[in-house]
Simulated assay, not measured.
Amino acid sequence: MSVLIVIPARYASTRYPGKPLAELTGATGQSRSLIERSWRAACAVGGVDRVVVATDDDRIKDAAEAFGAKVVMTSPHCANGTERCAEAHHVLGGAYEIVVNLQGDAPLTPHWFVESLVERLRGAPDAGIATPVLRCDGAALNGLLADRKAGRVGGTTAVFSADNHALYFSKEVIPFIAETFTDEQATPVFHHVGVYAYRPDALESYPTWPTGPLERLEGLEQLRFMENGRAVLCVEVEAKGRAFWELNNPEDVPKIEAMMAQMALE
């Protein structure tokens, strides 16, 4: 099955304008933009036929081409990354059998997260979309709770059924947890990793559906699939000792740089 990775990137983020071009310093002092680090993470994934950056902004286009990425220009009217991926796939001829959306704010995404996701989607012919979830340890859960207490969205959490179909995604921490956990303890909370793998029919249908009330309230694009009766397959992935966090707010920059230093990532 041919696999395309699309990295959707827009400049006009509400919470963090210009986020794709934010600089992150690695363990050796090397400074690279967020979009370049996300592209490098995508290029490390095995079994992929093509990686492209999809954007509507010339500043991102110029920066991406300068470090060697292939760029697909898309409409400024794309409401989210899934719509941008759908348009990019169409521009490229629509011939890929699996399209992966690796969002441009996730430079710490390990290659095996994406590889596991593609493998599971290949083995589930009835599924149109799959996305990874990562069980939080106490430290990660406390980080999510601290962000919410401070009025920030630190990440998205997911709950799913026994057959791994998503029940809901939220920027709140779900399910409600009354107990406390030590940093190393496993918790019942799953952090949703902002990566998606789509079959072309599901991806092509997505822009034709209206934005539903849950997607509008949460600001989570994957809820549009669920609001239109499409099952979302949750794939549990393993951290294998790697720290994971997405860059959602300016306050996340030092946190991610500290994680990169800890993991000796350049």
Results as ranks from 00 to 15, higher is better:
Ser161Phe: 00
Val159Trp: 02
Gln185Met: 14
His192Glu: 09
Val235Pro: 04
Glu221Phe: 00
Asn101Leu: 11
Ala54Val: 10
Pro213Ser: 13
Ile98Tyr: 06
Ala197Asn: 09
Arg216Leu: 05
Asp163Glu: 14
Val6Lys: 05
Gly212Pro: 07
Gly29His: 08
Glu83Met: 14
Ala258Phe: 00
Leu223Pro: 08
Glu179Val: 04
Met1Cys: 09
Thr208Ile: 00
Ala146Arg: 15
Ala12Lys: 14
Leu167Phe: 02
Asp105His: 13
Gly123Thr: 01
Gly194Ala: 13
Leu220Gly: 06
Ile256Met: 05
Glu236Asp: 13
Met263Lys: 02
Tyr206Gln: 12
Leu34Asp: 02
Leu92Gln: 11
Asp49Leu: 09
Arg32Leu: 12
Val6Tyr: 06
Leu233Phe: 09
Met226Arg: 10
Gln30Trp: 03
Asp105Val: 03
Met263Ala: 15
Ile129Val: 15
Thr25Ser: 11
Gly46Trp: 03
Ile98Leu: 12
Gln30Leu: 14
Phe160Thr: 07
Met263Cys: 08
Arg242Asp: 08
Thr157Asn: 11
Gly68Pro: 06
Met263Thr: 05
Thr157Gly: 09
Gly155Thr: 03
Ala95Arg: 15
Cys85His: 04
Ala158Leu: 13
Arg152Pro: 01
His111Thr: 03
Leu121Met: 12
Gly81Leu: 01
Cys234Gln: 14
Val100Met: 04
Gly219Thr: 07
Asp137Arg: 11
Glu119Ile: 04
Tyr198Trp: 15
Thr157Pro: 10
Asp62Tyr: 01
Val51Thr: 11
Val71Cys: 01
Val114Gly: 02
Met260Thr: 05
Ala197Leu: 06
Leu102Glu: 00
Asn164Ser: 14
Thr25Tyr: 03
Thr109His: 03
Gln262Asn: 06
Val91Trp: 05
Met1Lys: 09
Leu217Cys: 08
Asn164Gly: 00
Arg199Cys: 10
Thr208Arg: 13
Lys255Tyr: 12
Thr109Met: 11
Asp163Ala: 09
Asp147Lys: 01
Val133Ile: 12
Ala12Cys: 09
Pro188Cys: 04
Arg84Phe: 00
Ser161His: 05
Gly219Arg: 12
Thr131Ser: 15
Lys255Gln: 13
Glu251Ile: 10
Gly138Tyr: 05
Gly29Cys: 08
Ala41Pro: 09
Thr74Pro: 00
Glu65Tyr: 06
Arg216Ser: 12
Phe67Asn: 11
Gly68Ala: 05
Ser161Val: 00
Glu257Tyr: 10
Ala12Pro: 04
Glu119Trp: 04
His192Trp: 15
His192Met: 06
Gly104His: 10
Asp147Cys: 12
Leu223Ala: 04
Leu220Gln: 08
Gly241His: 04
Ala64Asn: 06
Ala178Cys: 00
Val6Pro: 05
His77Ala: 13
Asp163Arg: 14
Arg40Gln: 15
Gly26Thr: 11
Ala64Glu: 01
Lys149Thr: 13
Gly46His: 12
Arg122Pro: 02
Ile7Glu: 00
Pro207Leu: 04
Phe160Asn: 03
Leu265His: 06
Pro200Ser: 12
Phe160Ile: 11
Ser170Pro: 09
Pro210Ile: 09
His191Ser: 13
Arg40Asp: 12
Ala66Thr: 14
Cys85Gln: 03
His90Glu: 15
Thr25Gln: 13
